[in-house]
Design a binder for these strands. Structure first.
Length: 569
RNA sequence: CGGGGCGUGGCGCAGCAUGGUUUAGCGCGCUUGCCUUGGGAGCAAGAGGUCGCUGGUUCAAAUCCAGUCGCCCCGACCA
């Protein structure tokens, strides 16, 4: 490709619309342009990167025997009613009517469509297992799209769905995808972790997220610094050591705490540390009003609580409910004498003589102990943080930020039951297929690569994802000797199958160097009169500070050895 | 949806508190010519804006008021 013919609108200044680095650089390097909030056009360079990621994904999917299909972007309401998600999915699902007044939606994911396909076409266990995938646009009407293609409303996603006859098969399908994802993100050159995750909206029983480690990540990963345990913040379990605590009861007393509601207010007022207080948080749920207890310096992990009790609905109680059930206003709730089911975090097992709310206005209770009230049990209910104990070993948690580029789920029977996706087993009985689903945000993967690889001059794209592998850069395009050598190297590299661009623009060298760095092309061959008069050209890796002088006859060979090295890792 | 900010040539901004000397300006980019070629050069001449939109106040509005649309950030929420 000749640079002079490329549609690459590079920009010198940071665009106003972008805040995070990958977004700024993608705009500046002419990868993307915004059409509307959360909706982007991919320009030639960006699209080349996107396609390279897609091809890696395809390759690894195909190796695992997954088969590519292409499902529709527009989906009928009826299917979503069958799965129950027409009601549950909420406003992210963009709904509309066609001319015949049929209600439709733009697909945010494709469980319904693929389950419908498989239930119609698959009859026998002999046709299973099968894993189908597609790479296609999704639309989710995000509350707040942000960071360019990192969280956009329309985005390209690889989504795969597995169907198995039994648990063992489903396990294998899941592990195959896990394995494929590991390979994909290795090939993308990422520093990443596979972490245990909550299943969220998609539903199902078990799940991993693939997180690219990056400061600007929206997710927090908790990982153990001595064993391999890693989970996202929602999911991260906390270990504990059982010890004997001398328990006393019955000597608590009320104290006046006028107007002191928050933990820091109460503890400052009483002159105690926050870890000497137990917070009581009241929730309204589909199983009635409940309370959760956690040490004053920690936060309740609502996902853990929700999962513990298998709740569909769980939200913080309003002031009215709190007054009705506790007798006191918001900020003065405590477990003693409270007539609703209480679920306590395990920390509380090891506390004594602590502060709790008094369940009446302006009152707290001091010197409370766990035998002073009744709880349903002690569980791991708090949000993990660095320094907490690992649930698997005696190591400690540390926290890192990450960008979620992939997510895999064991769905179990959620959709096959709801949508009656069955097959006839060996024994002649009809059984539901066991499903799994597996997603990769393709555009987000490109953005993540930029978050992970950049410097003050621009992107440092991983070789596998760079829009071009090599840039042959003649310093002075109007100098015939220079151009002759540059063109020769360019043509030879093309013949060897290297994705090469020749910067034939009649621009001053500064502009060419800056653009080359901005775009992040991994290898640059600089051809200039200065070295050429001695028979040399220069090869520079984008990731290196210095360049190497090589004889012009050896240039192609040297480039190829770099290319081979990139391809190996 | 709550809170904050922003809309002025293609991009980034100034001007707006106190309306009129501004023919709406600056930097970058763009066009033409000359010149230049190892890190976003220089000179010269140009093109390009109904100041987001609608309405109001006024002799007079980019500037004041109201409404509206769009975008960005924080939060709730979510792959």
């Amino acid at each position: 490709m000749l640079f002079s013919r490329l549609f690459v609108p590079t920009v010198k200044e940071d665009p106003k619309e972008a805040e995070v680095l990958s977004h700024k650089l993608m705009l500046r390097a002419g990868f993307i342009r915004r059409l509307a909030s959360g909706i982007y056009t991919w320009l030639p360079l960006g699209l080349k990167s996107l396609r390279k990621v897609e091809n890696i994904v395809r390759d690894e999917m195909n190796r695992k025997g997954a088969q590519e299909i292409l499902m529709p972007f527009v989906q009928p309401k009826e299917l979503w009613e069958e799965s129950g998600r027409w009601e549950k999915y909420g406003k992210e699902l963009l709904r509309f009517f066609d001319r015949n007044n049929h209600e439709l939606c733009l697909g945010p994911t494709h469980e319904e469509v693929v389950t419908d396909l498989v239930r119609r076409e698959i009859r026998s266990y002999k046709e299973l297992p099968v894993t189908l995938y597609q790479i296609q646009s999704k639309f989710r009407d995000e509350i707040r799209p942000r960071f360019g293609v990192m969280r956009s409303r329309e985005f390209s996603m690889k989504d795969a769905y597995s169907f198995d006859i039994d648990e063992a098969g489903a396990e294998k399908s899941y592990m195959d995808m896990y394995d494929a994802y590991m390979k994909i993100f290795q090939r993308c050159g990422f520093n990443f972790r596979a972490v245990e995750a909550d299943t969220g909206q998609i539903g199902g029983s078990f799940s991993h997220e693939f997180m690219v480690l990056a400061e600007t990540g929206e997710d927090v990963i908790i990982s153990c610094d001595s064993c391999g345990y890693a989970a996202n913040l929602e999911r991260a379990e906390i270990g504990f050591i059982d010890r004997d605590v001398g328990l006393k009861a019955g000597h608590f007393r009320k104290v006046e705490t006028p107007g002191q509601r928050k933990v820091d207010e109460v503890t400052r007022f009483l002159g105690v540390a926050p870890d000497k207080l137990v917070k009581t948080i009241i929730y309204n749920t589909d199983r009635g009003t409940i309370g959760a207890l956690v040490r004053g310096d920690r936060e309740i992990n609502e996902v853990k609580l929700r999962n513990l009790l298998s709740l569909d609905v769980m939200e913080l109680a309003d002031e009215e409910t709190i007054e009705k059930f506790t007798g006191g206003p918001l900020g003065f709730s405590g477990p003693i004498g409270l007539g609703i089911p209480l679920y306590a975090d395990r920390d509380i097992l090891f506390m004594e003589n602590f502060v709790v709310g008094g369940n009446e206005p302006d009152t707290h209770i001091v010197d409370a102990n766990i035998e002073d009230f009744k709880v349903e049990g002690f569980f791991d209910l708090k949000v993990a943080r660095p320094g907490d104990m690992c649930p698997r070993c005696d190591g400690a948690h540390s926290a890192t930020k990450g960008i979620e580029v992939g997510h895999i789920f064991k769905l179990g029977l959620k959709y096959s039951d709801a949508m009656n996706c069955t097959f006839l087993d060996k024994d002649g009985k009809e059984k539901p297929a066991i499903m799994g689903c597996y997603g990769i945000g393709v555009g987000r993967t490109v953005a993540a690569a930029i978050e992970q690889g950049h410097d003050e001059n621009g992107m440092i794209m991983p070789f596998a994802m760079a829009p071009f592998e090599v840039n042959v850069l003649p310093v002075n395009s109007s100098h015939q000797g220079t151009m002759h050598v540059a063109e020769g190297i360019y043509k030879e590299l093309l013949e060897k199958g290297v994705d090469t661009v020749l910067d034939d623009r009649n621009e001053r060298p500064g502009i060419k160097f800056k653009d080359c760095d901005l775009i992040g092309i991994p290898l640059r061959v600089t051809v200039g009169e200065r070295n050429l008069k001695d028979g040399y050209v220069e090869i520079k890796l984008r990731s290196d500070k210095d360049s190497q002088r090589v004889r012009k006859e050896d240039a192609v060979e040297r480039v190829m050895s770099h290319v081979d090295e990139f391809k190996r890792c």
